[in-house]
Design a protein around this nucleic acid. Structure first.
Lengths: 211, 211
DNA sequence: TGTCCGATCTGGACAGTGCTTAGATAGAAG
DNA sequence: CTTCTATCTAAGCACTGTCCAGATCGGACA
């Protein structure tokens, strides 16, 4: 009878359940963390039977893949956003690193899923190196711009890998906020974070090509 | 009747079940990976009822803590072992980093558990900074030896954190071996690994105190 | 317009999980 | 030899991922 409700997203079979499930999963992730993310809970959150997801995803892993993909897109956008805000190229890499770690702090559960699903497949996350606008490409292109044209590609790739490893390690460690030396390091302004990043040679363009 | 069997570790109630459970867990971890590590599977592997572990560990998490602790001890030993093998202090940090990544490659499942159990507690892994011989202390002390006495403690700490983050990030990435640029990077000799480490300023003592 | 088809969703079931409780067992202490 | 206490088992609860038979409904085709 009340089919006229404003946002009663339940017209026929469900409209776009696949999308709704991914959204529901992210909602649970942000609200209760990764340990609460069961397939049944997602179905419950979306107001659907426990077996419904299986008509859109092969299994739970495939749902998580879709969730992770959304995460990679968001991370890529967050990293791209700082590009116009920094005047000198010298500080750009550092700010991209800050944006990366910030994302992992703002969406810790999502960030975890992004790497966990990839780990189960023994391959780098798909969304990470998507097309031209993937987050990985962004870093590599930035290195390419910062470095002179005389720097060979292999060094650019090496630098990108090193920077990515450092940022990822930093992001993981930032979760352990109670630890003495790391306390207050990742909260508030990113001063300490920038200090650690500056200790990592990769984020100083002059070190792109070490002797 | 056959109580005279050589290694029939089942004398009374079980002897030392706690230890046996941790060993069984690690065995499962190395054989089938983290996803197969259920408490019931551990009990099965140890030849004991599913409820038996609860007399030695509050819950599954506490068992994993014990497993992780064994892992941290092994990692610390692995990192310490290279100390006598490198003549110059300059290369020592790099070799410690290599030892760290190597451990994560040799025991990927155990390595994952070591960080996962810590993450649930929002604090750095306990075993990591144990006593004087913890792995973290080893790195800090090495930095202390490499750097001159004029380098303040805060910079040593900063360098240790940065190095740890970089090594951890590298260890995590080394699992994604299928990725183009990383392919062959972590296998065989550690040449590529050393190259990436050298790109990370932290592993070059001269960079301990950046301007 | 009416009928059927195929995609979508439900209800129920199965094995496996973490964990609890009540009771059995056996080593040690009296 | 009895008793006590730590250890272990059996049975069961709520939950999970996954599959299956059947219900439902939108759209295509007549």
């Amino acid at each position: 009878m009340s089919t006229a409700a404003v946002a009663d997203i339940r017209p026929y079979h469900h409209g776009d359940l696949r999308r709704a499930l991914v959204d529901a999963a992210i909602r649970i992730l942000e609200r209760e963390g990764p340990s609460a993310l069961s397939l049944r809970a997602v179905a419950r959150e979306a107001g659907v039977s426990p077996a419904a997801p299986y008509h859109h995803f092969k299994d739970k892993g495939e749902l998580l893949d879709a969730v992770a993909h959304v995460g990679w897109e968001a991370l890529g956008e967050g990293m791209s956003a700082v590009q116009g805000e920094v005047p000198d190229l010298s500080g750009l890499m550092t700010e991209i690193g800050v944006a990366y770690v910030r994302f992992s702090q703002d969406h810790p559960a999502l960030y975890r899923v992004m790497y966990d699903t990839a780990r189960d497949k023994d391959s780098l996350p798909e969304g990470m190196q998507d097309k031209e606008d993937g987050a990985y490409c962004l870093v590599r292109n930035t290195f390419r711009s910062v470095a002179g044209p005389d720097v060979p590609d292999v060094d650019i790739e090496l630098a990108t890998i090193a920077a990515w490893c450092a940022a990822h390690g930093l992001a993981e460690m930032s979760g352990f906020a109670q630890f003495g030396p790391l306390k207050d390091a990742f909260g508030g302004d990113a001063g300490f974070l920038r200090a650690v990043l500056s200790h990592l040679g990769m984020f100083q363009p002059k070190l792109v090509k070490p002797t």
